Simulated assay, not measured.
Amino acid sequence: MTDAALVVAPVTDRADLDAFIRYAWEIYRDDPLWVPPLIPMQRDFLDRAKGPFFEFGQAEYFLAKRGGRIVGRISAHVNGLYEKHHDAETGFFGFFECENDRETAHALFDAAAAWVRAKGKVRLHGPLSFSIYDEVGLLVEGFDSPPCMMQTHNPPYYEDLVTSWGFAKTYDWYAYKISWKPGMDAKKLAKMRDSILRRQNCKILPIERNDFAKRGPQIKELFNDIWSKNWGHIPLTDRQFEDIFVTLQPLVRPDLESMILDGDDIVAFSVVSPDMNRSVKKFNGKFGLWQKLQLLYDCRVRPLTHCRAIIMGVAKTHQWKRLHHAIILNIIVNFLENHPKMEYCDCSLIPESLEQWNKTLLDYGGERYKVFRLYDRAI
Rank of each mutant, 00 (worst) to 15 (best):
M1N: 06
D3P: 10
A9K: 14
P10I: 03
A15V: 11
D16K: 14
F20K: 03
Y23T: 12
E26I: 14
R29S: 09
P32D: 12
W34H: 12
W34P: 05
V35E: 06
P37L: 15
I39G: 06
Q42T: 12
L46H: 04
D47F: 05
G51Q: 09
P52W: 06
F53N: 03
F54K: 00
F56A: 14
F56C: 02
F56T: 13
G57I: 00
Q58C: 05
Q58L: 04
F62T: 04
G68R: 08
V71Q: 08
G72S: 02
A76W: 04
V78E: 03
E83L: 05
K84T: 04
F93Y: 06
G94Y: 00
F96S: 01
N100S: 02
F109R: 04
F109Q: 06
A112F: 04
A114P: 00
V116C: 02
R117N: 07
H125E: 11
S129P: 03
F130W: 04
S131N: 12
S131Y: 03
I132P: 03
I132V: 10
E135V: 03
P146K: 01
M150N: 01
M150T: 04
Y157V: 06
E159T: 10
A168E: 13
A168F: 07
A168W: 01
A175M: 07
A175E: 10
Y176G: 10
I178E: 08
I178Y: 00
M184E: 07
K188N: 15
D194R: 06
S195L: 11
S195A: 15
R198M: 13
R198N: 15
R199I: 13
Q200N: 14
C202G: 09
P206C: 12
I207L: 14
R209S: 15
F212H: 09
G216L: 15
G216H: 12
I219K: 11
L222S: 08
F223A: 05
D225T: 12
K229T: 15
W231C: 08
T237A: 00
T237W: 02
R239W: 07
E242R: 14
D243A: 15
I244S: 12
I244Q: 11
M259H: 14
I260S: 08
G263N: 00
D264L: 08
D264K: 14
D265F: 05
D265H: 02
A268D: 11
V272G: 07
V272Y: 08
S273W: 02
D275N: 07
M276Y: 05
S279Q: 10
K281V: 06
F283W: 01
G288N: 03
G288K: 00
L289S: 01
Q291A: 00
Q294N: 03
Q294I: 01
Q294P: 00
L296C: 06
Y297Q: 02
D298N: 06
V301M: 06
P303T: 05
I310Y: 07
G313S: 03
V314N: 07
T317V: 07
Q319P: 09
L323Y: 05
A326M: 02
N330G: 02
N330W: 05
N334T: 15
N334P: 04
H339Q: 09
E343D: 12
C347P: 03
S348D: 04
S353N: 05
W357C: 15
L361P: 02
L362Y: 11
L362A: 15
D363C: 04
F372D: 13
A378H: 14
